[in-house]
Design a protein around this nucleic acid. Structure first.
Length: 299
DNA sequence: GGCCAGGTGGCCA
DNA sequence: TGGCCACATGGC
C-alpha cells in the first residue's frame, strides 16, 4: 500500500481542467498522466519522492506516494502538501477573476468552458527559464522534444514500474556544458548560449527565485530578468506567471494569445500589441489568468 | 516547398 | 525609443 493522504480543495478548483491542460502533449517529460491522475517526481530535501494525484469525491485530492514507506511519507507530507498547493495555485481565490471574466466579451467563453482551471506552476525557476527559452519562436511540439532530450540527458531520474520519472537538470550541471553539446540535440547556437548563460548565472548565485521575490513589484522583477541575455519581455512575463505566480504578469506579444484572441473575436487580421494591451486593460490584476484561459481555447 | 512557430538581440536612424 | 532583420530548425 502506498502512503496516501487527502488534500481539500476550493470550490473554484477543478482538477479535470488541470489534467486537461497537463495532458496537452504526450511528449511531456516532467510528469505523466495516467488513469485520470498525474504522476511526478519531486525532490524533498535530498529525497526523490514520486507523487500521484487524482480527484476524489467532495472537493478533495487524493495524493499517493508509491515509492515511500509510511514513515517516509509521513515525514514528507507537509512538504508535499506545500509543493502541490503551489503547483496548482490552490491558495488563490479565483472568484474575483470569474466575476470579472463573465462580464468580459473576450473571456466569458473561455471561463464558461474551463472554470476551475488553475495556472499550472513551474516551481523550479531554472526549469521555467529554460522552458521559456526553449519555446521561443518554435512550434510547441518541437519545444517538447527539445526539453525531453535535455532532461533525459542531464537530469536525475527514478525508475518506477514501467516508467522512468525525471527531475529537471540543475544549473550546476548545465553550467559546465559546452554549447556545442546542446547543438547536437537541435538547439540553435543562440538557445544553447542563452541556457548555459542562465545556468552559469544561477550556479554562481547571481540571482535566484528568492532574490527575485525580494524585488517589490512586476516592473522590478521584469527588469531584473530582461537584463539577462536571452530573456526578453515575453520570457520574463511567462516566468513571472508560471513560476513567481504573479497574476498581473502578461506575455503580451505571445503568438498563442494572439491566435486565441483572433479566434474569439473572429477577425482575420492579427491584433497589434497596442490593441491587445487595450483589451487587457480590462483584466486588471488578472492578466496572467486571462492569458492562461485563452490559451486553453487553442491548446 | 513555403510559411509559421508560446521571441530576442543587435543595428540603425 | 522605435522599427527592421537575422537567427535557425522542425511541423504541417
Amino acid at each position: 500500500m502506498p502512503y496516501t493522504f487527502t488534500m481539500p480543495t476550493d470550490k473554484s478548483f477543478d482538477f479535470t481542467h488541470i489534467l486537461g491542460y497537463m495532458e496537452r502533449s504526450a511528449n511531456e517529460c516532467m510528469h505523466r498522466i495516467a488513469d485520470r491522475g498525474v504522476e511526478k517526481l519531486i525532490a524533498i530535501g535530498d529525497k526523490l519522492v514520486l507523487v500521484r494525484i487524482e480527484a476524489q469525491e467532495g472537493h478533495s485530492l487524493a495524493v499517493q506516494c508509491p515509492n515511500a514507506t509510511n514513515s517516509a511519507g509521513e515525514a514528507a507530507e507537509a512538504s508535499i502538501v506545500e509543493y502541490v498547493r503551489e503547483w496548482f495555485d490552490m491558495d488563490r481565490d479565483l472568484l474575483p477573476f470569474f466575476e470579472l471574466a463573465r462580464q468580459d466579451d473576450v473571456l466569458s467563453g473561455a471561463v464558461a468552458q474551463f472554470a476551475g482551471l488553475r495556472i499550472v506552476g513551474i516551481e523550479n525557476l531554472f526549469e521555467a527559464l529554460c522552458w521559456g527559452i526553449m519555446g521561443q519562436q518554435i512550434n510547441l511540439g518541437f519545444a517538447y522534444t527539445l526539453k525531453r532530450r535535455f532532461v533525459e540527458r542531464y537530469g536525475e531520474s527514478l525508475p518506477w514500474k514501467d516508467h522512468r520519472f525525471w527531475l529537471f537538470p540543475s544549473p550546476e550541471r548545465i553550467a559546465a556544458l559546452d554549447p556545442a553539446e546542446l547543438k547536437t540535440m537541435q538547439f540553435t547556437e543562440r538557445k544553447a548560449d542563452y541556457i548555459i548563460g542562465v545556468a552559469r548565472l544561477m550556479a554562481q548565485g547571481a540571482f535566484s527565485k528568492s532574490s527575485l521575490l525580494e524585488l517589490p513589484n512586476l516592473e522590478a522583477r521584469e527588469k531584473a530578468l530582461t537584463a539577462i541575455r536571452g530573456i526578453g519581455p515575453w520570457t520574463a512575463n511567462y516566468v513571472l506567471m508560471r513560476c513567481l505566480r504573479m497574476p498581473e504578469a502578461f506575455p503580451v506579444a505571445d503568438v498563442g494569445l494572439r491566435n486565441a484572441l483572433k479566434h474569439v473575436l473572429g477577425g482575420d487580421a492579427k491584433l497589434s500589441i497596442a490593441e491587445i494591451n487595450a483589451l487587457a486593460s480590462d483584466w486588471g490584476e488578472w492578466k496572467s489568468y486571462a492569458t492562461f484561459y485563452l490559451w486553453r481555447l487553442l491548446y
